[in-house]
């Protein structure tokens, strides 16, 4: 237990410093853009669509990848088993996701009040949702991105660069060509509508402009469960590449 705590502390504390760098960069870019727009249009009432959520998503994604590479080695050297490393890494993901989602929720709400910025969350679900739901859904979303990226990097590590490139391209092809093709040519109108409806429903957007925030929660928890479990199964057989 002591060792597990130490591993979790290691993961969290050593990644913590990067958060401030990340926000430093994000906000300075946002600030500069706002100033430039302000100067060039002479309009003080600018509505930015700079999505904090997307930035954070990229950040947690990168973290998922780095989380594997560096820390796996370091923890292996210090006698940790893959099970412990997995738990520590997931704790790191949860830790970072909760902080990022909290900051993003607060900032986007403040900026919305100041009429400067509309968050993606607000755009999808409306701006009058409770604070806690805004935070929870962002948190679960970031965490699922982490898990997806983690499985990705574990798979790449396992298969080697060439094989993963082939598989990656294959997946991309399916997503970019096959799915739209099926959507367009195979499905008939009503099936198409049901699919779209189902997708929106799983994201919590119901017909008639109603919103069900429970749905995205379930969706993201399911994603975390599936990708987390898959990551665990892969890491249990992962060897250290030296």
């Amino acid at each position: 237990m002591r060792k597990l705590k130490a591993a979790i502390a290691y993961e969290c504390l050593t990644s913590f410093k990067h958060i401030w760098i990340f926000y430093g960069i994000t906000f300075s870019i946002v600030g500069i853009i706002l100033i430039i727009i302000g100067i060039s249009t002479g309009d003080s009432e600018v509505r930015g669509t700079i999505s904090l959520e997307v930035n954070s998503m990229v950040y947690v994604g990168i973290l998922g990848v780095l989380g594997f590479k560096e820390d796996f080695k370091m923890l292996m050297q210090n006698g940790f088993t893959r099970k412990y490393i997995f738990i520590a890494t997931l704790s790191l993901f949860a830790f970072i996701s909760s902080i990022l989602s909290l900051i993003d929720t607060i900032v986007s709400r403040v900026l919305h009040e100041a009429m400067l910025y509309d968050s993606v969350f607000g755009g999808l679900y409306g701006f009058d949702q409770p604070f806690i739901m805004n935070w929870l859904i962002l948190f679960l979303f970031y965490l699922s991105v982490c898990c997806i990226m983690y499985l990705g990097v574990l798979t790449v590590n396992r298969l080697g660069k060439r094989k993963s490139l082939v598989i990656g391209l294959g997946l991309l092809l399916i997503l970019a060509l096959l799915l739209p093709a099926i959507f367009r040519y195979v499905l008939d109108n009503s099936a198409r509508d049901t699919t779209v409806e189902l997708l929106l429903k799983s994201l919590g957007i119901l017909p008639g402009g109603r919103v069900a925030l429970v749905n995205p929660c379930i969706l993201f928890i399911a994603l975390i469960g599936v990708f987390g479990l898959a990551s665990y199964l892969v890491i249990r057989r992962t060897e250290l590449k030296i």
Binding site: E70, K73, M74, M76, Q77, L240, I242
Partner: peptide
């Protein structure tokens, strides 16, 4: 203690 560098 290994030849490979595993430390951060």
């Amino acid at each position: 203690m290994s030849e490979a560098d595993l430390y951060d």
